[in-house]
Amino acid sequence: MAKRPNHSRRRQHNTTFLGKIKDKSIRKIKARTEENLSVLYGLTLMGFVSFDSLYELFTPFFFIGIGLKINPSALTAALGMGGILLVAAVLGKLIGAGGPTLLTTGWTGAALIGVSMVPRAEITMIVMGKGLSLGEWAVSNQVFAAMVVVSAVTSILAPIILRSLLNKLPEIPTGVSN
């Protein structure tokens, strides 16, 4: 009869002195992190901390991290590709989102919807960051820098254009009773 392998679930610990210190430190950090997260979840559920404040706290770090991943030498080379991607991104959103609404809202409403959909920031940068971490075969430094340019330009220009479009809309009287 063949002997069955031992598939014990017990964790193998380091036997060296430094290995034991490392394991102990990792267990302490893990326990403290879990405790802090539990407290944070509890405070959030009780209403003392809101997800909005957490979002506002961590969002700048996300974009700073993206900026630190840009290879400065690739940024200048990426401007041409970024311009082409920018035109494709804007036209894609204007046609894809604004086109169907043209039938029901007219040119101004279609432009509002289309321009509102143009900004590309978090999701695009998450996907590009993951691709960059996979290596040059997935996303090159030049493509990453070009998408950062597209995200920055669309995120800055869309609100400016939206403001001018909203100013063209007729004012709706408020508080008017029949």
Rank of each mutant, 00 (worst) to 15 (best):
S133D: 15
I21W: 11
G114D: 14
I66W: 01
V127D: 00
G65H: 00
I70R: 03
G92S: 03
I66F: 00
V149F: 15
I126A: 07
V115N: 08
F51K: 07
G19P: 12
F61D: 05
Y55D: 05
V149C: 08
R27W: 04
R120G: 09
R32P: 00
L169N: 07
H7C: 05
R120H: 14
K93H: 09
P170D: 11
P173Y: 05
K20L: 02
G114Y: 10
G47W: 10
M117T: 14
T15L: 15
V150M: 08
F51L: 14
R163K: 15
S8M: 04
N141G: 08
V139R: 03
K69A: 08
E122S: 07
D23E: 13
S155D: 05
S38D: 11
T44K: 09
R32H: 08
K22D: 09
I113T: 15
D52M: 01
I84Q: 09
E35L: 10
E56W: 10
I70G: 04
L94C: 02
G106W: 05
L162E: 05
M125Q: 01
V139N: 03
I113D: 12
W107K: 06
K30R: 11
T154C: 13
L79N: 07
G92D: 06
T33W: 08
V87S: 04
L57I: 00
F63K: 02
T44N: 11
E56S: 08
I172W: 03
P72D: 08
V143M: 12
I126N: 04
L134C: 01
V49I: 15
G47A: 12
L132S: 08
I156K: 00
N141M: 04
P170R: 14
E35V: 13
E122N: 07
I123H: 01
S116N: 14
I29E: 10
T33Q: 13
K30M: 10
W107E: 00
A111H: 06
G98P: 13
G82V: 03
K130C: 05
L132F: 10
V90Y: 04
K93G: 06
G109M: 07
L165E: 01
I70V: 15
G109H: 12
V153F: 01
A110F: 07
T101W: 01
A97R: 06
S177K: 12
G82S: 03
V176E: 14
T101F: 11
F51M: 15
N36M: 11
T101K: 08
I156H: 00
R32Q: 06
F61Q: 04
R27T: 03
Y41D: 13
I70T: 11
I84Y: 09
R4Y: 08
G96V: 04
R120K: 15
V39G: 01
I126R: 04
T15R: 11
K28W: 14
F63Y: 10
F144N: 03
T174G: 13
N178L: 12
K20W: 00
W137R: 00
S50Y: 01
W137K: 02
P5C: 07
S116V: 02
G99S: 12
Y41Q: 08
